[in-house]
Amino acid sequence: MSFTIATTVDEALVALDAGARPIAGGTDLVVGARHGKAALPADLVAIDRIDELGGVELDSAGVRVGALMSHAELMTDPVIVGSYTAIADASALVGSPSTRHVGTLGGNVMNGSPAMDTGAPLTVLRAAAELRSVTGSRTVSLDELWAGPGRTTANPGELLVALHLPPAWDRCGSAYVRLEYRRAMEIAVVGAAAAVTLAADGTVASVAVALAAVAPTILSVDGVNEALVGRTAAAAGPVAAALASEQAAPISDLRASDRYRRHCIGVMAKRAVDAAARRADGESIAVPVNRSLGIGAA
């Protein structure tokens, strides 16, 4: 058993190669261990002091978001709030101020929960995950990364170092809306993210919708772009709702029945498309959209 504190990515990768598991804020790992979900790994490497894993940087390919960005940082970062707003909406809903300060984007993504808040926003914004190991690095789409509830296709020796987002484009807005029963320490009952680009005449030029907590992984809604392009924003919402409810494959658990989830995911998808279109049209809607528009309840 061992515990080491890495200060560089290379140090962390060497520890992972030797069998250690990474820990940043520990909000999933420590709570999960107590619940008996998975024992605390015998060998841990703390990655929360690695400067290279932080920050949001603009590069030629778009934006690089460090895996160690906390939810508190993401919800106020000017680039994220300005151009990738759905990620800020989601980060602002995670846990409580405490959870948001220690919880990280990388942890949320690699924990692989189908109810993760940042997953649907990252999906509609076409994020890719950069994984590194002692032998090299590779960048994979999130579809390839998430394998099932709590499972990813990353190898044990691989560390998520960053999420890469394509450059922001004009007249594009995004939003993440979550159905919640309370305003803190909540997990999405269901959640929906939308990214909408508007044409000059105000109709939909392109759109993507992704759903949380209605399938074994984050679910990208098929056919939504084809069905919505050319429609007005007002007409697009109900169509998105129908497609979302149709494609959802929810389970029943103590938080909601499958029927309730299937109905509500349509409602959340419509609200997400509406809010994203309003943002695309230049309206400033404060983060998180759940609270500023009061649209997180059934």
């Binding site: 504190i5 820990i23 909000t27 420590v30 220690v102």
Partner: peptide, 14 residues
């Protein structure tokens, strides 16, 4: 910054 100390490893606070 606020922290739920029940869910944080003490070794990480070094």
């Amino acid at each position: 910054q606020p922290l739920n100390s029940c869910s944080y490893l003490a070794v990480q606070a070094q």
